[in-house]
Nucleic acid binder design. Structure first.
Length: 466
RNA sequence: GCCCUCAUCGUCUAGUGGUCUAGGACACCGGCCUUUCACGCCGGCGGCUGGGGUUCGAAUCCCCAUGAGGGCGCCA
């Protein structure tokens, strides 16, 4: 059997980290089994669905590195892949009729001014249309059969539900659109989905859906429900906890691979925690996922990001960093005109930061003509002793022939011990003078990367301002 | 209220009846390195939700309790 899985977001907001994780696990499962990963847009909520949301969800999925064989704007043999388009194609309508005919569903006619109160149930289309013409709201309701519904969840084992614990439920709204529980069944079946892997919030929807499968006499796919992501206080992850959308972490400056790495880590035990999830498909095993709701740990995410920051080839990091700058700090893109210099700068800065946002602040002073001093740096530069230590530094640097880190270190240490100043103060003074910050990459490396000319120019600038 | 799921350090987890005085990672604390902040290295703190069983033996199996999460929409 070919594995076909899908991710089916509703375009009513941003892609949530939980959604991203679900999508990732589906993707991983598909790849591992040589199957297909399908994207379907569930936009049957005409009030809340927006095209912008669909766009941003798709963009965020792509940022995560996910790709799909079938979906909107991609096509495929089982399209269309937007439910609104499927409504227009009459796909659900045709299936509702079958349910009506087999007595598995009925029309509900509501009181004229009260669309909560059902005044009549019927399976006659004619009768329903009649009422509709007279202004009554009409829906189609699925009739819960008697008995039990039993299925096997891939993670949790046998699930058994008494059908009597469920109430008949609406499958077609009065505006003609199918409801979620109905549309998923029809689409998953028609799209030949073999495994439905989704959040645990859908667990109790599953028996309802299975009842529909059985009413159609269709074979249902395999189901697996994965735990939800919670915040530190064990309540559902929300804005109060920090960010919840993929978009948030993206602009926060988390590296894409690290984000996906962390998502995979949530519930998946591996020996080496830092990895490229896309190279781990063989090792991936859905059924080994942990069953308990997981807490989203922002600190660990940052750590994972930092690991990737340092491990990945600089060229690759720079590509990603440039993409981040394009979206968040466009003037930073021109920093990379001098590729060789930029590479060196990034190389020394990446050693100490975890996110692009912080990388940007480390890197920036290397690229601007005259760095704007931070408050701390300004305080140092305003003090009276500045000239007396910067002058000898200038002279010594100017005389240097071999421009290498060891030599620079020797020279700087030399001044610190000759002059009447502590190493710490002197080093901080140089940081402030050269980079306008008191927190910088290693001082000797910084001077080395800046190069002789820039170093001299910057010192000259400070001296002139005195 | 009814139904469903889950339960090992603060967090993510290893563990599948004896090798567990419960292992790792993040966080935290201390130290080293040292030029700031970090990175890195070393060390420390810290946990089997409770109660009953089953068994020679339970983190591991069963039951109950408790706690947490989810569902019970013309939302998905």
């Amino acid at each position: 059997m070919t594995v076909r899985v899908r991710f089916a977001p509703s375009p009513t907001g941003y892609l949530h980290v939980g959604g991203a994780r679900t999508a990732l696990f589906n993707w991983l499962f598909a790849k591992k089994n040589g199957g297909q990963f399908i994207l379907r847009i569930e936009d049957t909520d005409t009030q809340r669905s927006t095209p912008e949301s669909e766009r941003s969800i798709i963009e965020d999925l792509k940022w995560c590195g996910l790709s799909w064989e079938e979906g909107p704007n991609v096509g495929g043999a089982f399209g269309p892949y937007r439910q609104s388009e499927r409504v227009r194609a009459g796909i659900y309508e045709e299936h509702v009729k079958r349910l009506l005919n087999s007595n598995s569903a009925y029309y509900a006619i509501y009181e004229l001014k009260n669309d909560k109160k059902i005044v009549k149930k019927t399976t006659s289309e004619e009768e329903a249309n009649d009422f509709r013409k007279r202004g009554h709201a009409v829906t189609v309701i699925f009739k819960i059969p008697s008995g039990k519904t039993i299925f096997n969840d891939m993670a949790k084992g046998e699930m058994k539900f008494e059908n009597s614990t469920f109430d008949d439920f609406v499958i077609v709204k009065s505006n003609g659109y199918p409801t979620y529980n109905f549309a998923v069944v029809v689409d998953d079946h028609l799209m030949k989905i073999s495994h439905v892997v989704r959040g645990e919030d859908h667990l109790t929807n599953t028996p309802k859906q299975i009842m529909i499968y059985r009413a159609f006499e269709w074979k249902e796919p395999a189901f697996m429900h994965i735990p939800l992501i919670l915040g530190a206080d064990r309540t559902p992850l929300s804005k109060r906890h920090g960010g919840t959308s993929v978009d948030y972490f993206r602009s926060y400056g988390i590296i894409d691979k690290a984000f996906v790495n962390y998502l995979a880590l949530l519930g998946w035990a591996v020996k080496n925690e830092i990895f490229d999830p896309f190279k781990m498909v063989k090792a991936f095993d859905l059924e080994k996922l942990s069953l308990k709701p997981v807490t989203f740990d922002y600190a660990k995410l940052e750590w994972v990001s930092g690991q990737h920051m340092r491990n990945m080839p600089v060229e690759e990091l720079i590509e990603k960093f440039k993409a981040w700058l394009r979206e968040n700090y466009p003037i930073g893109e021109k920093w990379f005109e001098n590729k060789e210099y930029a590479e060196k700068v990034v190389e020394i800065c990446r050693q100490k930061v975890n996110t692009f946002r912080v990388l940007k602040s480390f890197v920036e002073p290397f690229f601007v003509e005259k760095p704007t001093p931070t408050k701390d740096a300004k305080e140092i530069l305003d003090s009276s002793y500045v000239q007396s230590y910067l002058l000898p530094f200038f002279d010594v640097i100017e005389k240097m022939d071999n421009w290498d880190v060891e030599e620079i270190e020797k020279v700087i240490r030399g001044i610190a011990s000759n002059e009447n100043i502590s190493k710490k103060r002197f080093f901080q003074l140089l940081r402030a003078a050269l980079l306008g910050q008191t927190v910088t990459p290693g001082l000797f490396e910084s001077v080395y990367v800046l190069g002789k000319k820039r170093t001299l120019d910057r010192i000259q600038n400070i001296l002139n301002a005195k």
